[in-house]
Each structure stands twice: as C-alpha cells, then as structure tokens.
Amino acid sequence: MRIFTGKAFVLFASVSACSFLPAGDAAAMHIADGIVPFGWAAVWYAAALPFIWLGLRRMQTLAAEDLSMKPLVGLVAAIVFIVSCMPVPVPFIGTCSHPCGTAVAALLLGPLVAVPVALVALLLQALFLAHGGLSTLGANVLAMGVVGSFTAYGIFWAVRRFGAGLGAAGFCAGLAADWATYLTTSAELALGLQGAESFLSLFAAIAIAFAPTQLPIGILEGAMTAGVVLLLSRKRPDLLLKMRLLNAEEAKT
C-alpha cells in the first residue's frame, strides 16, 4: 500500500483547501450530511444524547425558577444561527467566514444549556442552509455543543482564576472553543473516512486542509466572544451578575 505523505501532501492539501474557498463564504466547520457512515453516526448520536438530555433537564430546572428562560434559550439559539449567516472578512486568506457562537452561549447560559442551543442552531442550519445535516447532527452537536461549550466554559474560568480581565478571558474562551471544535470535527471525520489510511495520517491531512480557514475563524470567534462579554459588562452588568460571570464587587466597579 502506498500512502501520499510528507511535505508534498501538506502542500497539496493546503492548496486544494484554499483553492476551493475564495469562491464564497467559508463555512464554520460542520460535518456534511452523509459523510459519516451509519455506525459512526450512531456512535456520535449515542455520545451526544446524554449531554442533550442533561442540558434539557438543566434548562427545565432554570425555567421552573424563571419563565423567561425558555424564550431566552430559543433566542440565543436563533442568534447563534444568525451570526453563522454573517460574512466577516478573514485575514491572511482573503475570504469571508463566520464564527460558531457556542462559546458565547456557554458563557451566558452555562455549558449544559449550551448543548441544546447548539442542537437547535445546527438543526436550523441543516434545514435552512444545508450546513451539517441529520445523519451528522450527533457528531456536530458533540463537537460544537459539547466539546466547544465545555472548553469555552473551562478556559474562561481558568483564565479568570489567573486574574485576567473579562475581555482576555472571553477571547481565550472563544478561541479555545473554536479550535477544540475544529480538532474534534477533524477527528470525527478521520474516523468516519478512514479506509486504507491510518487514522493519524488522515486526521493530520484533514486538520491541515482546514487550518487556513479554521485558525483565523478561531481568532474571529475569540474577538466576538470578548466583544460580547465586554459590551455586556459596560451596558448591562446586571446580566453578567445574573449569569455569574461577574461577582457583586466587579459589577459595582
């Protein structure tokens, strides 16, 4: 068996990925419908379902205390969908792209509630835009909703613990969430597409092929998350206090 590896492959994968992109907007990294075989699709669904169930339970608990919770979750899901329709120029590669928005959802609503938010946004994207799909919904929810949300939340609080400001913590959370989503999606794709190739070589090929768009999108996601958190801290610190992103002392200052 011969496998095309080494510098030539890296160059070819990057060039082929870039050559497809300038024609239009580069989409955030969702796995397209039909790409993952049935067995793996079932595995990703099974892995995502407990988090969806926990997220819905958490949302019901919060909704029992505050009746505006469900409309809020629905509206945040709609915003995640809408920001994915906004073309923003991506530096270095001369194309447009858009962030995922799950980092913001995870910070504002908590990582568990962000899972159903991602599910709803992904379902709407699949139906209205043909981004992602039904068979890959489990894989996409796992990458974007579970890994993305929990990474964003964990990184935000880890950076805050080191004394960083809201903006810096928000930026790191958005950046880490996007890159974690991208790496998880690459791994899911590599497992799904694996044939004669080894998992690692295919994972590297996919990760490299999408790096020219996904690395700048991560920075865009970080900037957006920082922008949202900073804007909320200036205009509505009470909301950040309610979402426990600020403590009472910080809200006063």
Binding site: G74, L75, M86, P99, A223, M224, G227, L231, L232, R236
Partner: peptide
C-alpha cells in the same frame, strides 16, 4: 475593524435577546 464591529453586533443582539425574552415571557 471587522472583529470589533462583529463583536458589537453580536453583543447588541444578545442584549436584545435578553430584553425580548423578558417581554415575551411577560
């Protein structure tokens, strides 16, 4: 400029979402 503008746009939408969710629930 793009990153800054997009942050403001997303932040404003989130603010509207909070206000609208309260109004809708009421």
């Amino acid at each position: 400029h793009g990153f800054r503008s997009f942050g403001i746009l997303a932040g404003t939408l989130i603010l509207r979402a909070f206000d609208q969710s309260q109004a809708t629930a009421l």
